[in-house]
Amino acid sequence: MSVETSAGAVGYRPSRTLPIWAEVRRQASRRRTQLGLGFMAVLPLIVLVAFEFDSGGGDDGNGGGAFGSLVDLATSGGLNFALFCLAVSAGFLLVVVVALFCGDTVASEASWGSLRYLLAVPVPRARLLAVKLIVALAYSAAALVVLTGVGLLAGTLRYGWHPLGSTVAAEIAPGPGLLRLLGIAAYLGVTMLIVAGLAFLLGTLTDAPLGAVGGAVMIWILSSILDQITALGNLRYLLPTHFSDAWQGLLSTPAQVDDLVKGAISAVAYATLCWGIAFWRFTRKDVTS
């Protein structure tokens, strides 16, 4: 737009400010990004080593149910091992990592004081948020991919390429099993949108990165606790974590996707709401950091 070029300095275009790749590198150089992604890669290996200590006889009576069966089946093949890694991470670890990537991205710039210099470049506020959000989501997705990929690779190398087993349904052949595993990872990614939404919103409202990350994780945990209280009845459907276990439907044959669809609706709605508020608020507020 000619108006913009004439108004701004030579070579300045709002749509070129804070290129995605620049933001990727900004975040990549941070220790927390490296640790977060690194831990995702190391976790499957730790679990693998832990399984090696299994003396074989020790049944310490873990509670049973679908999850207990995942433990029992974890060493039956690469697919099951990767599934196990996803299942143990889904409840907390992934939540923390996603909250870290999404909640910290704006709040940390605010706490360093560099946010006001980006805005004075000027990077348009909406563009700043959009780029930050896209990159944070990309890193979150990368964490999920790394976890799944390393789990699959390490598990396959150690336990072989076998069908995906579960106690709720018959074994699923490796080919379709891989698709199911990817589906589960994708669904987890979708549910994590809620965490991403909450953390991002909090990150634009506060200058304290810890507050944003911790706040999002705490809301997630609170919602999980409330979800256990059946007395709340249908109100529980409104809880952001209510459908977080629906991925287990993909272990059934044929796959049960109804709950996944509802979970996706919940996740998309929450994420859109949070991001909407974040953009609305951030493009209007006085940046005081």
Binding site: V168, H242, D245, A246, W247, Q248, L251, S252, P254, D259
Partner: peptide, 11 residues
């Protein structure tokens, strides 16, 4: 048709 993850029932 399968099994529901949330209420551990059949579908």
């Amino acid at each position: 048709a399968g099994f529901s993850a949330l209420d551990r029932g059949l579908v």
